[in-house]
Design a protein around this nucleic acid. Structure first.
Length: 404
DNA sequence: TCTGGGGTCCTAGGACCC
DNA sequence: TCTGGGGTCCTAGGACCC
């Protein structure tokens, strides 16, 4: 007699989220290769200019910008499944994607629109259970344990209901994996996409998980994958077969133990329903690499704008921070960070600009600069007790004279 | 084909305090 | 005078994720 599974955790991932939201606006693009990305460009003026008040769905195909017309340093964030057929994938440079599929339609990223749909699909889930963990705009984990029907058919009944509710509310499809824990749920969800459901039990480990490449484990990235391959560890099964002591010796006690547990499908991390931001940042890649001396004015203006944007983000969300930092990426793609922890909390653009300016002075500025970023960390709620200024710290405030 | 922007967490050394 | 630990904070870098 089989014991019923105690934990049932779902991972829900919206299918090609940004691209799918765009297809709701431009249904005439359905079935075509469409990619989202390319940086700060707005939709070509020509596309909308002579279109007046007619609905977006009337815009003829020849008005849409194509990948081949793009010049710049942007990357692809999402593509439709039709575009993926050509080998176009996320994080790929747009110029490279243009070679693979020059006729693909290129749309700019519209985060405000995606956030709207993000809230909409998450609201549908929250109607079923409050035990939802946000993993960015298009992904969540859901604890099925206390949800109605959460255990029926291993979670399939509830997964189907969620898919239907989300489609009815948004017109968007998603893929769901249900498993004994978050680690396996995430991998399960990848098995059947788009619009799929995969139910995974502990007993499926050897047949369904071990044949997968190590990269499929959430937490094993390209670097680690390369290292593992050097030891002829290609699949999760290869990893699971290694002696835990050997893994510890090779990769450190803590990380080695994690690798061993992950390969055996073990993960007891809880579904976190609340989280507080740790840092907020803004960064920008220039259209051309800038030199600290020759392009001082331009650099300074961008720097100030980044500080104002971070300050605006902090204010809007009600946070203050005391660790101010900068990030510089050079034309050779190397980079440095510098930060400073002040004796006070701030969300003020001028104070951030002042402290970030001190940090920037500590960074090497001989090479040309590709990217500049400003970060505020060690955040607390603006109205919390910690955020209140202390008399002995005032002296450090820029532009403030010591009290005595 | 040169490679965005916004995050999190971990590690490791040094300072500093007890 | 020399020799210790432990704990915490700070800084810089790196890996990873969406």
């Amino acid at each position: 007699m089989q014991t019923p599974p105690l934990r049932r955790i779902a991972h829900l991932d919206m299918d090609a989220f940004y691209a799918s939201v765009e297809l709701l606006r431009y249904p005439q693009l359905k079935g075509l290769p469409v990619v989202i990305g390319g940086g700060r460009r707005r939709v070509d003026d020509a596309m909308l200019a002579d279109h007046g008040d007619r609905p977006l769905s009337d815009i003829p195909l020849d008005k849409f910008p194509r990948l081949r017309d793009y010049v710049g340093r942007g990357v692809i964030t999402t593509s439709t499944y039709a575009a993926r057929q050509f080998g176009v994938g996320s994080a790929m440079g747009v110029m490279k994607a243009a070679k693979l599929c020059p006729d693909a339609i290129l749309l700019p990223v519209d985060f405000d629109e995606y956030r709207k749909y993000s809230r909409a699909f998450k609201d549908e889930i929250l109607k079923v259970t409050p035990l939802m963990e946000n993993r960015g705009v298009d992904e969540v984990y859901i604890d099925f344990e206390f949800a109605a029907d959460g255990q029926e058919d291993g979670g399939r009944v509830l997964a189907q209901r969620l898919q239907q509710a989300i489609f009815a509310a948004t017109g968007l499809t998603c893929s769901i994996g249900v498993a004994p824990n978050k680690l396996l749920a995430k991998m399960a969800g990848e098995i059947n996409k788009p619009n799929g459901i995969t139910i995974l039990y502990e007993s499926d480990l050897a047949t369904k998980i071990w044949p997968l490449p190590c990269r499929k484990i959430n937490g094993i990235g390209p670097r680690m994958d390369e290292k593992l391959k050097r030891f002829a560890i290609e699949t999760i099964g290869d990893l699971a077969a290694r002696d835990p002591e050997w893994l510890a010796a090779q990769f450190g006690r803590s990380y080695g133990a994690w690798l061993h547990a992950a390969a055996h499908g073990r993960d007891d991390s809880p579904v976190h329903t609340h989280s507080e931001p740790v840092s907020m940042s803004r960064e920008t890649t220039f259209g051309r690499d800038l030199h600290a001396v020759r392009d001082k004015a331009e650099l300074g203006a961008v720097f100030t704008r980044l500080c104002e944007q971070v300050a605006g983000d902090l204010a809007r969300k009600g946070y203050v921070g005391k660790t101010i930092g900068i990030k510089v990426k050079y034309d050779d793609f190397t980079g440095v960070t510098r930060d400073h922890t002040a004796g006070f909390y701030t969300a003020d653009a001028k104070e951030i600009r002042q402290l970030a300016g001190q940090c920037l002075k500590r960074a090497p500025l001989e090479k040309r600069i590709r990217l500049l970023g400003v970060r505020v960390g060690a955040l607390v709620k603006a109205d919390s007790a910690e955020a209140a200024p202390r008399a002995e710290d005032i002296a450090e405030k820029p532009g403030t004279l010591p009290l005595f």
